[in-house]
Computed example of a mutant assay.
Amino acid sequence: MIATFMKLAVGALLFCAAFASSSLPAAAAAAASPPERIEKTDVVGTAFRLTFSSGKVLQGKELVGATLSLRLSGDAVAHRVRIDDIVTDSRDPDGEVLLHKVTVVDGRTPVELCDPDPDGNRWMFPLKGQWNSEGKMISQSGFTLTCSAGAQGKCVRFGYKPWKTLSDGTDLAEYHRACVNMVRADYCGDRATTRTGMKIDIYDDRGIQREAESSGSDELSFEAGWSTAGAVCVAHTRVPDRMTLDGLQRSCPRLANRLGSVLCTAQNAKTGLFGKALIFNRSH
């Protein structure tokens, strides 16, 4: 699949917390006879699920209009966040991904969360676990509000859903981590080297994303195969003024003998010559 990344939002992690309180939308409030408390907050896929003291459960689109009190990880101050809309992602053939429009309503002027994604939308959704600003999962507990403009959010929308396991036991969480490295051009698994406006072709060994046909002056060439640790080999770097093959050889010893288009071919990456690659990409 060809994708153009208009903005790489490395700060996709916004809130990691449990609900401190919740103001429900009118329909949900009417359905929840007072007094009721939120006993449990879960994230299922990309949907919130609230369990109340009466046993009532509200989740997904039922929470449109709710105002939530969320606390930043390590922050004692709670922030009031309103869910303005929730829609099913039209790109998801399974209809599992829910996109949320969210606004911070702490101050006089509401502030919409998230930078615009390549389509100009400011969607976000929750994911179980916590990620740091480098796109790495640091905890299985809690949840993260992930922007569609960020690497974590993009990779979910590409089909690499970290909560899913395929029928043959394949854990898509590993594909999601490999995809985050690929989006960030994080070859050594330690820092992003991409920039705004990069056009790449993404594909994998499971057919979740398929290699696009290329033609004419727009032809892309194989860049790298990707694993949960970063690249398994690199044919060429995506943004040479941010990282070169020579720079990779110096800064990432494990890639020293896996660099250049002679050694790092799509075939070598696919056959596991340099280790198991889950995702592949082409770029200019």
Score class of each variant (00 low, 15 high):
S90Q: 13
K136P: 00
T271W: 02
L255D: 01
T144K: 02
A185D: 02
A9G: 07
A12I: 05
A20I: 05
T103D: 13
D190F: 11
S251M: 13
L50K: 03
C114E: 08
P253N: 06
M6V: 11
K161T: 11
D186R: 08
R250S: 10
R122S: 10
Q152R: 03
G169H: 10
R108Q: 13
S167V: 12
V57D: 00
N257M: 14
G216T: 11
L263R: 14
L24W: 04
R80G: 10
P253I: 09
N281L: 02
S148F: 00
A151D: 01
V156S: 02
I83S: 07
K164M: 12
G55W: 03
P116A: 04
E62Y: 09
T271C: 08
F5A: 09
K136F: 04
R238M: 12
S21A: 15
P240I: 07
M137R: 07
T41I: 06
D92V: 11
P162L: 11
K136Y: 03
S21C: 15
A173R: 07
A149Q: 11
A277K: 08
N132L: 01
G60K: 14
I200G: 01
L113H: 05
S133H: 01
P240N: 05
V239I: 10
L166Q: 09
D186Y: 05
E62C: 10
V10F: 07
H79E: 07
R206L: 15
V10H: 08
N181T: 03
F15L: 04
M137A: 07
L113N: 01
V104C: 13
L99P: 07
I138W: 01
L13R: 00
R191N: 06
D241Q: 15
K164L: 13
V102C: 10
R250P: 00
R250I: 09
Q140E: 10
P93K: 14
E96H: 12
S217P: 06
A192C: 08
L166K: 07
C114P: 06
E96W: 12
A26Y: 11
L68G: 09
G207I: 12
V102H: 05
S251G: 08
G275M: 04
V232N: 14
T228V: 03
S54T: 13
A76W: 09
E36H: 15
L255M: 06
G120I: 08
G153L: 08
E211Q: 13
K270D: 07
T228I: 07
K101M: 04
V262F: 14
L14C: 00
K161V: 02
E39H: 03
V183D: 01
N257E: 15
S215F: 03
A66Y: 12
G272W: 06
D85C: 03
P116Y: 00
D92Y: 12
E211G: 02
K199E: 05
L248C: 10
L273P: 00
F125E: 10
G260F: 11
G107W: 06
D204R: 06
A27N: 11
S133N: 07
A18S: 11
S214Q: 02
T46K: 14
P118M: 00
F158D: 02
S21W: 15
R242S: 13
G11H: 05
I138C: 01
V57L: 09
R184H: 07
E219K: 15
N132P: 04
G230Q: 04
A192M: 12
A78F: 04
M243I: 13
S21F: 15
L245A: 14
N132H: 00
G153V: 03
G197W: 14
Y187T: 13
G189C: 05
V105A: 07
R157E: 11
K276E: 09
